[in-house]
Amino acid sequence: MSWKRGAYPEFTLEDVIATIFLLREPIGRKAIAETLDIGEGSVRTLLKKLNWIDVIDSAQRGHFLSKTGKKLLERLKGLFSEAHFVGKVDGMPAYAIVVKNPPQFKSIELRDEAIRFFAKGAMILIVKNGEPVFPEDERPLRDTMEELAMNIEEVLNFSDGDLIVVTWAENPSDAMKSAYHVALTLKNDEIPEELKSLVR
């Protein structure tokens, strides 16, 4: 495919993943660009590549997932959830994501990954007895941040053993994409190759 010979794309795998979740409903290029805080030209290239691998269809009301795209989304949802806005932490927008069947991890390394990807801070939680707790001492999140715990329970579906990543940043797109980044770090080996190929 010809794009591989061109310049390095101006979007990341995190942008690709976020876009696939956004495309469940028809959405226009401008709305994607605003949500991800990337240029419309980059979004155009991204959508073109998704079209090349038969992941999206387009109509007057916007772009949306094709049959192949919907299957791909289901595969991704088996690995991790969509990143959801869960309020503010330290006065900044925060997003949370559920990672299913997480491999062995070190919380500090995952927090560092989030910060490397433009988050100002991150919190790694595990689900025990139906609620998010800190893995270090199994202290429930609601003991220290009740509102955040309630917001997480409202927007995310999780089960015992799942990992929950909460990231916050000065702007929503950085918070959202840093949450996806941690999920991708944990599930890198299981991400479909055709998606990884879009950013090489």
Rank of each mutant, 00 (worst) to 15 (best):
R5I: 12
A7L: 12
Y8A: 03
E10Y: 01
F11Y: 10
F11R: 01
T12N: 14
T12H: 02
L13C: 10
V16R: 00
V16D: 08
V16C: 13
T19C: 07
L22D: 12
L22P: 09
R24V: 13
E25W: 12
P26S: 07
P26C: 07
P26D: 05
I27K: 11
I32L: 13
A33D: 03
E34T: 11
D37I: 12
E40W: 13
G41S: 13
S42T: 03
V43H: 05
R44M: 12
L47R: 05
K48D: 15
K49Y: 14
K49N: 08
L50W: 11
I53M: 09
D54L: 12
D54P: 14
I56Q: 02
I56A: 01
A59C: 08
G62R: 02
G62S: 02
H63M: 09
F64G: 03
K70G: 05
K70T: 04
K71N: 13
L73S: 13
E74V: 13
L76T: 07
L76C: 06
L76R: 10
G78I: 03
G78Q: 11
F80D: 09
S81H: 06
E82A: 04
A83Y: 04
A83L: 02
A83T: 00
G87D: 05
V89E: 15
V89K: 14
V89F: 07
A94D: 14
Y95C: 00
Y95L: 01
A96R: 07
I97S: 03
I97G: 00
V98F: 07
V99P: 01
K100Q: 01
Q104I: 12
Q104F: 15
K106H: 14
K106S: 13
S107Y: 04
S107L: 07
I108R: 08
I108W: 02
E109M: 15
L110H: 04
R111T: 08
R111Q: 14
E113L: 14
E113N: 08
I115G: 02
I115D: 08
I115K: 14
R116Q: 11
A119S: 04
K120N: 15
G121W: 00
G121A: 00
L125I: 03
V127A: 11
N129Y: 15
G130E: 01
F134P: 02
P135Y: 05
P135M: 03
P140G: 04
L141I: 00
L141Y: 00
D143Y: 10
D143C: 12
D143T: 09
M145W: 03
E146P: 03
L148H: 05
A149F: 06
I152T: 01
I152E: 08
I152P: 05
E153W: 05
E154T: 04
V155R: 02
L156G: 04
L156D: 02
F158W: 05
S159N: 13
D160K: 00
D160Q: 01
G161K: 02
D162M: 03
D162C: 03
L163W: 09
T167H: 04
T167S: 12
A169T: 09
A169M: 06
A169L: 06
E170V: 11
N171E: 04
P172F: 11
D174P: 08
D174M: 09
D174R: 15
K177V: 09
K177E: 06
S178I: 11
Y180Q: 05
V182P: 08
V182C: 14
D189N: 13
I191F: 13
E194H: 06
E194C: 08
K196A: 01
L198Q: 07
L198C: 13
V199K: 10
